[in-house]
Computed example of a mutant assay.
Amino acid sequence: MNRLDTKQIMEIIPHRHPFLLIDQIEDYEPGQYAVGYKCVTYREDFFAGHFPGEPVMPGVLIVEALAQVGAVAILSMPEHKGKIAFFGGIQKCRFKGMVRPGDKLRLETKIIKQKGPYGVGDAVATVDGKVVASGELSFMVG
């Protein structure tokens, strides 16, 4: 297994606090897949307004976390070192559960297509083995 801590993740992708949404990578294969985690705490900035008294992680941030994990898979390839992976689109996205403070969000993105700088990742987010979000994320490396 190829593990990465936060410092190592920041050597691969350009995201920083407060927008770095992954805490660790459990395993990855450059250009193939990455599996990471976000440990969701009550102290996340977005919980102040989403929603007061009923904290729920915004779905768009779950998708962004999945994209960041996919970016680790793509940008860890030697030919993409120092580049940025930009969103190209989101297809077949579904939200099936809520993410709350105290949850450990498992994020897995498999690269299913890649041609030149363009590609698509199949992404699934789970909490305690239950799918909370899934979709296909397209990207462009620039």
Rank of each mutant, 00 (worst) to 15 (best):
D122G: 04
K7D: 14
G36I: 07
F19E: 02
K83N: 10
H80K: 04
Y42F: 15
R94W: 08
D128G: 08
L61H: 15
P30H: 04
P30M: 02
M57L: 15
P58M: 08
L107Y: 09
D27A: 07
V40R: 11
R100V: 15
V69M: 14
H17A: 02
Q32Y: 01
V132D: 08
G49A: 04
K81R: 15
P14E: 05
Y37G: 03
F47N: 03
D5E: 09
T6E: 10
E79I: 02
K81T: 12
D128I: 03
R100K: 15
I62P: 09
A34Y: 00
Q91F: 08
V99D: 15
Y42H: 13
V120N: 01
H80N: 08
K130C: 08
L105A: 04
G116K: 01
A48G: 14
A48N: 15
G135F: 04
K38Y: 09
F87R: 04
G116M: 00
T6M: 10
I62C: 14
A133S: 02
I112P: 00
G82T: 05
M140S: 01
Q8L: 07
A73D: 06
R94A: 11
I112D: 00
F86I: 06
V131P: 11
E64P: 13
G129D: 01
D103N: 12
P58C: 14
E79K: 06
L75D: 07
C39K: 13
A123H: 04
G102S: 05
K115W: 02
S76C: 04
L4P: 06
V60Q: 12
L21A: 03
A48P: 14
H15Q: 09
M1R: 07
F95M: 07
I84L: 07
K83Q: 11
P117Q: 07
Y37K: 13
S76P: 08
